[in-house]
Amino acid sequence: MLAKRIIPCLDVKDGRVVKGVNFENLRDAGDPVELAALYDREGADELVFLDISASVEGRQTMVEVVRKTAGEIAIPFTVGGGISQVDDMKRILRAGADKIGINTAAVLNPQLIADGARRFGSQCIVVAVDAKYNEAWGEWEVYTHGGRKASGIHALEWVRKAEALGAGEILLTSMDADGTKDGFDISLTSAVADAIRIPVIASGGAGTKDDFVEVFTKGKADAGLAATIFHYKEISIPELKLDLKLKGVEIR
């Protein structure tokens, strides 16, 4: 049986970690490579880098960050943010990333999922979905452009389509739960997990260790992703994993 995964997410801009990181034992808390190596040592099962650079130079820097990270860590990692072409994917994968995350670009051009999967294999293609509950629909809607634009697309429909096109995984962020620390969006996560067979990474809302237990059991998620609670040591990964193990969750 596969172990449930704990995934810290690092926002990187122009080669530096943003959204302050609070680690005393880092020489340079803004260095994504050093932070990645620390999370590897702490027992993170995977990492996600979200490149929020707006410039071409910033994106070039990201390739260098990926290359250095691949040499320093012994766990898989995904790179997302601003990837809109197969050539972008190739550059990042060749630099040593294991998977590519695509979000807005996939909504605008779903063929990108199929092209990427055919070229590099489904296991390399993670489709990131930002979803928000739409009261009028009584269902979740997909948002693009970092959550700024409503797409008019039903989230459950979109993840099914992404799977059919060859996505290897869905990184599902609940915009309703994100930032609240009130727990993952269990109804959204379990609805998505029931709709598809590929793994679901739940994101948004984690505040306590029990939130992870809940998302892995009731939420049926395969992985749980969080950023600030790990960066600020509100939850330590070794303690979280021990806790999950004690509660009967299969963990590495």
């Binding site: 489904s122 296991q123 395969d222």
Partner: peptide
């Protein structure tokens, strides 16, 4: 069982 077999296994 999902294919590919992807992830951490014992």
């Amino acid at each position: 069982y999902k294919v590919p077999h992807m992830g951490w296994n014992r």
